[in-house]
């Protein structure tokens, strides 16, 4: 098994209010079979042994489904590899002697909590504003009770793959949350169950998005390039269209 010796440039920040800084660490004897998070684990073990504060980072599932492992690697959220989260990135993608810059997801709407850990509860508040359908809970309805055309089901499913990781915001030069919001809105708006509250959903989610201080989309599509679930920016076009229609209907028939 081959090993790598790397230099890490890591953003360290003691708490939400303190100034952060880039610190340099040597990552020695890293097996190429390690994942990126395991590489940081190895560095942290050494830091702890040396009595230093380990690098704090978010993680949970380590298999690309929870969306916790927010990290910007060499300027690109989840690294330059397409369609993966940081936890799915392997060290064999790096070369011996590489310098790797590791920074938190940057957006004022995602304040840094500590080191690489950011607070993404702005996303939760956007979901609470409209990312749901109002149905009676209880026994599950029959799967074929409401027929859904295949193309709509596919489109909704593509959007539903969003894991809320926030990479789209972190990659955007404007820290816009349009890809996330459009995926969540599109997921429900494509389905008959979501159709009922569509206008209110779109208006409320977009208003919450604006209130959280995310920037405005300038159609550069950096979001779709870094999205681990490869959500397409065509959902943003749909959100724009739905928002225009919902605003018009609200104006004439509130």
């Amino acid at each position: 098994m081959s090993h790598l010796n790397l230099t890490l440039k890591v953003w360290r920040q003691d708490n939400a209010t303190s100034e952060g800084r880039i610190e340099t660490y040597e990552a020695k004897e890293i097996p190429t079979s390690a994942s990126f998070l395991e590489m940081i684990d190895i560095v942290n073990e050494r830091l702890i042994r040396d009595g230093e504060e380990p690098i704090h980072f978010d993680h949970d599932c380590r298999e690309g489904i929870c969306g916790m492992c927010s990290m910007t690697i060499n300027g690109i959220p989840h690294s330059k590899e397409r369609g993966i989260t940081t936890c799915q990135l392997h060290m064999r993608k790096f070369k011996d002697g590489d310098t790797i810059w590791i920074e938190p997801f940057r957006a004022n709407a995602f304040p840094v909590v500590k080191d690489l850990v950011v607070d993404r509860s702005a996303f939760d508040r956007i979901i609470a504003a409209g990312g749901y359908i109002s149905v009676r809970t209880g026994s599950a309805p029959d799967a074929h009770a409401i027929p859904v055309p295949k193309s709509d089901a596919d489109a909704a499913f593509d959007a539903a793959a969003c894991i809320g990781c926030g990479a789209c915001v972190a990659a955007c030069k404007n820290a816009s949350a349009m890809l996330f919001v459009s995926a969540k809105a599109s997921h429900l708006n494509h389905l008959p169950q979501g159709e009922v509250e569509k206008d209110q959903r779109v208006l409320n989610m977009v208003r919450q998005m604006d209130a959280e201080g995310f920037g405005n989309c300038t159609n550069q599509f950096e979001c779709e390039a870094v999205c681990p679930k490869e959500i397409s920016a065509q959902h943003i076009a749909k959100l724009n269209r739905d928002y225009l229609a919902a605003s018009a209907r609200e104006a004439v028939a509130p």
Binding site: G75, I76, W101, R106, K173, S176, G215, A225
Partner: peptide, 16 residues
């Protein structure tokens, strides 16, 4: 948009 975020120490652009 400028006010919505702080820049990265290591900047990169994928496809813009």
């Amino acid at each position: 948009n400028k006010a919505a975020r702080k820049g990265y120490a290591h900047q990169a652009t994928v496809q813009a």
